[in-house]
Design a protein around this nucleic acid. Structure first.
Length: 844
RNA sequence: GCCGGAGUGGCGGAAUUGGUAGACGCAAGGGACUUAAAAUCCCUCGGGGCUUAGCUCCGUGCCGGUUCGAGUCCGGCCUCCGGCACCA
């Protein structure tokens, strides 16, 4: 009998599938389409276990849908621009392009070795001019529509990466990539006006509900951060000017005891003579520890009650949100409360909860209550007063109701080399001029000096900078910033819609029969939750813009989203030598110094913590099928997966047993290939188990994406198969049917072994051209069920009874049961609850 | 602080609509085969108690509620994980 040699069969079938072009995709109007997409990788060098898991999940769905008769688009590509390539160039002197393309070559081989069913003819690589040309094209379209604009603004600057970061890329005031603390810097930047779509992006969230995980939708809503309030002017007492404030709590207007301006507010400089002190305060702007302020010596008039209140500059007031100025109500806002306490400002209660308030307050009361000391609004519920006062303000013309968003425009300028050049030139005569469409792409020059000194590489490349003005033909200078790489990934799912990877966006515009309309939206998107805001929000924004351009018809690019959990592993640590690899541990001791090794938390696999598992090693040791099977079996897709060396052995053992069983019986199985299925008393339970397994596994894959339980069911079916003893030819036909079903059900998870054994029992390849098996509800039904008999909700007896019995018979059986009798002894039966096919509960 | 999510055997995890808690796998223990080991196969496997072929009590983070019946629903806590965080 042949031994199970994963490498041999996996390579064999991978080349078979490729030669046959089994996963190449074309438009087919007669079949329902299914677009299955996994987030494309950054070509960092090698794939990691997170990729294996992500792509294994996607591959199950793609292969399953294909067998279900869908026309499936399942593409793959490379998110190939980005900093690591440039850093590698600086450190090792390799050109970013060479580094990137070599990594792509290696990683592509790895993905192919995993046997994923991609249509490689549609592969996209974002750093190729054929791709980034369209980044530039989209930029120009947005520029035309006023959605791309340049402004000087305070930006997040990462000194280590020597570039600007988007708000979304700053995590706890640190760089998302290198963890360096970000600084603030004033720079001319290009922005995309995502805020123009704030309301639409928010409303679109409702549509996503059901298809996306609720917590991701919540994060998006949160990020957009809509809030309703009013804007109104507080005139200065001397009449020289006025301060426009924004508040969501107009019901507390009578409780305002001072006004605060942001230190960055233009008026701040005018109101403060002592510029040194203002500078000092600006230095603490954004400091969340302490609230500091500066009294301007000026007063403002509260338009609601005519009261004169002091004007402060306060470091906690953000210029970027609302109007950069607030009215302060210390009694009902904790921040104002803290500020008021520090500077001894009055605290006036105007909202009282039912239980009353104890004054002096030790914290602001921010809850609901009844309005007091507020003119005609006194006595109202504050929630009603918010509306009433809003209307009043508008009627009186002293302010207006407005909606504010937390979302900021997307700053896309990066002072780095390895990205898409922004297609703009600056001419002394004509100003800012877009590069004409027919001159695209603006190519990245190859000969650049990558020193890592902080100056943008393109800004030091004369041949690139110097150009002619497209309008007047005079000398002009190119924009030297490149685009944020999130631009690349904001539309790559549309690039895949073009056959043969030949992207021509312009030709697809307003094209009635565009393939984009056929494939979009993505039916199932799969990726890490770390992109819950960044990439997913940008993509939703882009798709809306592209819809207006006439390129797509949908607003939402991703109908369903599955966010897979992280792949984790235990960490090992030596008090002397830090993180340790498993092979650096000897009998619980550090192999370098002999200290007792600390078994740390189970954490996300990372090179720095030395708790990674290399997919190459897994493939070599166990093969692709085992690696896939384990990562799907160990946990449901959305949950974190804890790595287990023993667990992967278990998955391998399962495939090995399956191999041995089928191979040892292949002759008998093949002999009954053309015989009709014939069940008997002996084979009935296996036959039933098979139908039950088809039903259960199909439901788990189709409705719940619960691959772990689907696989568990396949293991159960396998256990039934291996304990079955066929007596005659009829039994062999049932065994053949069960094994065929098992192989079909297993094929999305472990495609190579399924294909090999499919052929071994005399079937024609490919198994992936077979329809998904159907179950027969009748055949799946149990003839006998185990009836549970409870007395007062406690299990007292179990009986095997025919499944067909009606409620009365079940009741009778329960009441006459010997064991049950003991518990009924002399007691009055008050009620009997019968749940058919499950249980009878007798209440006494 | 606010918004999400989760807490079930020694471990990863099942239990789909409120109906037998612990499927499947891993680990562990016992046995078979073997000169031996590995591999493989078979059996046991939540905890306690008893008069131990069996019987019985307890058990899904904690407290309470609804229900004939709660891992599942409701209210209140605790712990852990993730996101946001001076957004007025």
């Amino acid at each position: 009998m042949r031994r199970y040699d994963p490498e041999e069969i996996e390579l064999k079938w991978q080349s078979y599938w490729q030669e046959k072009g089994l996963f190449l995709t074309g438009r087919d109007p007669h079949r329902r389409k299914f677009y299955c997409l996994e987030m494309f990788p950054y070509p960092s060098g090698k794939i990691h276990m997170g990729h294996v898991r992500n792509y294994a999940i996607g591959d199950v769905i793609a292969r399953y849908k294909r067998m279900r008769g869908y026309n499936v688009l399942h593409p793959m590509g490379w998110d190939a621009f980005g900093l690591p390539a440039e850093n590698a160039a600086i450190q090792h002197g390799v050109h970013p392009a060479k580094w990137t393309y070599e990594n792509i070559d290696y990683m592509k081989k790895q993905l192919q070795r995993m046997g994923f069913s991609y249509d490689w003819s549609r592969e996209v690589t974002t750093c190729s001019p054929e791709y980034y040309k369209w980044n530039q094209w989209f930029f120009l379209k947005m520029y035309e529509k006023g959605l791309a604009y340049r402004k000087s603004s305070a930006v997040n600057w990462c000194p280590s990466c020597a570039t600007v970061l988007a708000n979304e890329q700053v995590i706890d005031s640190r760089c998302w990539r290198c963890d360096t603390e970000v600084q603030e810097k004033e720079l001319e930047q290009w922005f995309l006006k995502i805020t123009a779509y704030a309301e639409e992006l928010l409303r679109g969230c409702d549509e996503l509900s059901g298809g996306w995980p609720e917590h991701v939708i919540a994060m998006q809503r949160n990020w957009i951060g809509r809030s309703e309030g009013v804007e109104m002017d507080f005139p200065l007492a001397d009449g020289s000017s006025s301060i426009r404030i924004f508040t969501t709590r107009p019901d507390t207007l009578w409780g305002a005891t001072f006004v605060c301006l942001s230190p960055m507010h233009p008026l701040a400089e005018k109101l403060i003579e002592d510029t040194a002190r203002l500078e000092q305060l600006r230095a603490s702007y954004g400091n969340t520890e302490d609230k500091e302020g500066l009294f301007t010596g000026r007063y403002a008039i509260n338009p609601m009650n005519g009261e004169r209140i002091p004007v402060f500059i306060a470091n906690f007031v953000l210029m970027e949100y609302g109007t950069g100025a607030i009215m302060s109500v210390p009694a009902h806002d904790q921040r104002d409360f803290e500020f008021a306490r520090r500077y001894n400002l009055p605290i006036r209660v105007v909202i009282v909860p039912e239980a009353g308030l104890k004054e002096p307050l030790d914290a602001a009361y921010e809850g609901e209550g009844i309005v007091k000391d507020s003119g005609e609004f006194s006595g109202m519920k504050n929630t009603d007063a918010i509306k009433a006062i809003g209307q009043y303000i508008e009627k009186k013309g002293i302010g207006k109701r407005v909606v504010n968003y937390r979302l900021r425009d997307w700053g896309i300028s990066r002072q780095r080399y390895w990205g898409t050049p922004i297609p703009i030139v600056y001419c002394d005569r004509c100003g800012t001029v877009p590069v004409p469409e027919d001159e695209l792409p603006v190519l990245l020059p190859e000969n650049v000096t990558l020193s890592g000194t902080g100056l943008s590489p393109l800004a030091q490349t004369e041949e690139f900078i110097n150009t002619r003005c497209p309008e007047c033909g005079g000398r002009a200078r190119r924009e030297t910033d490149t685009m944020d790489t999130f631009v690349d990934s904001s539309w790559y799912f549309i690039a895949y819609c073009f056959p043969d990877g030949e992207i021509d966006i312009a030709a697809a515009l307003n094209k009635e029969d565009s393939e984009i309309h056929y494939w979009m939206p993505v039916d199932q998107y799969i990726g890490g939750v770390e992109h819950a805001v960044l990439h997913l929000l940008y993509s939703r924004f882009f798709t809306r813009v592209l819809k207006e351009l006439g390129l797509v018809r949908t607003e939402e690019p991703f109908r369903r989203l599955l966010t897979q959990g992280m792949v984790c592993k235990e960490t090992l640590r030596c008090p002397e030598h830090g993180w340790l690899l498993p092979e650096e541990v000897d009998n619980g001791r550090c192999s370098k110094c002999g200290s007792t090794v600390i078994h740390g938390r189970v954490e996300k696999m990372s090179k720095s913590k030395k708790n990674v598992v290399d997919p190459d090693y897994l493939i070599k040791t166990y093969g692709a099928d085992t690696s896939r099977l384990f990562s799907l079996f160990a946990a449901p897709p959305e949950k974190d997966l804890e790595w287990s060396d023993r667990g992967i052995e278990g998955a391998h053992r399962f495939l090995h047993r399956l191999w041995n069983l089928v191979q040892s019986k292949r002759q008998q199985l093949e002999a009954v290939k053309d015989s009709p299925l014939q069940t008997s008393e002996n084979s009935m339970s296996l036959y039933r188990k098979t139908h039950q397994s088809i039903k259960k596994a199909t439901g788990d894959i189709e409705q719940r994406y619960q691959f772990n339980t689907a696989i568990a069911q396949l293991m159960e079916l396998f256990n039934s198969i291996s304990s079955f003893r066929p007596d005659n030819d009829g039994d062999w036909t049932v065994l053949r049917f069960s094994i065929k079903s098992l192989l079909l059900l297993l094929s999305p998870f472990a495609p190579h072994i399924a294909e090999e054994l499919w052929q071994a029992i005399g079937e024609e390849p490919s198994i992936f051209e077979q329809p998904w098996p159907e179950w027969d509800e009748e055949a799946a039904r149990e003839e006998e069920i185990e009836l549970v008999i409870q007395v007062n909700g406690k299990v007292r007896s179990k009986r095997s009874v025919p499944a067909s019995l009606d409620e009365d018979s079940l009741k009778e059986i329960a009441l006459s049961d010997e064991k049950v009798q003991r518990f009924l002894d002399g007691r009055q039966v008050r009620k009997v609850i019968v749940v058919r096919n499950r249980l009878v509960n007798i209440v006494v």
